[in-house]
Amino acid sequence: MPSTLGEKLKELRRQKKYSLDELAKQSGASKSYLWELENRPDRKPSAEKLIDIARVLDVTTDYLIDDNATFDDAQVKEVFFRKFNTLDAETKGRVMDMIDVWSRKK
């Protein structure tokens, strides 16, 4: 299980099948900046960049920077709600309708 920021970034990027170029495009960071984060343990990202990278990789910033953090249910929920909150009102309504239908199946 990866523990350092660099290990986590590399593992998450590979899980999503992103090259450094792709992650750079989607996060707004440069390829060289991301390479340094993955390969140089002394690099500390800015909070702004870390937020953008975490968003693209579907994790929280806490997970990335805490060497002891695991990606647990709370992390999954936080990522879900972060994505949900970016939806427009109509799409949020459709998601809520689907949740209502699924919850009735019990």
Rank of each mutant, 00 (worst) to 15 (best):
P2C: 11
T4G: 11
L5K: 02
L5E: 01
E7Q: 15
K8I: 04
K8W: 06
K8G: 05
K10T: 14
K10Y: 06
E11Q: 14
R14K: 10
K16R: 10
S19P: 03
D21W: 09
E22N: 07
L23Y: 03
A24M: 05
K25P: 00
Q26L: 15
S27F: 01
S27I: 02
S27G: 05
A29Q: 06
A29N: 06
S30Y: 01
K31F: 05
K31D: 03
S32G: 10
L34I: 04
L34W: 00
W35G: 08
L37P: 02
E38T: 11
R40G: 08
R40M: 15
P41T: 15
D42L: 14
K44E: 10
S46V: 00
S46C: 06
S46W: 03
A47W: 02
A47T: 10
A47D: 10
E48N: 04
E48K: 07
K49F: 05
L50N: 01
I51S: 06
I51G: 00
D52V: 00
D52H: 02
D52K: 09
I53C: 02
I53P: 03
I53T: 00
A54W: 04
R55A: 05
V59Y: 08
T61R: 12
T61V: 15
D62Y: 13
D62T: 11
Y63D: 00
Y63S: 04
L64D: 03
I65G: 01
I65R: 09
N68P: 00
A69K: 06
A69C: 11
T70M: 14
T70C: 15
T70E: 14
D72W: 07
D72R: 13
D73P: 06
D73V: 14
V76R: 13
K77M: 10
E78T: 10
V79H: 08
V79N: 05
F80Y: 15
F81P: 02
R82P: 03
K83C: 07
F84A: 05
F84W: 13
N85I: 00
N85K: 10
T86Q: 15
T86F: 03
L87C: 06
D88N: 13
A89P: 13
E90P: 09
T91Y: 11
T91V: 09
T91K: 14
G93D: 08
R94I: 04
I99T: 09
V101D: 11
V101C: 09
W102N: 07
S103P: 01
R104A: 12
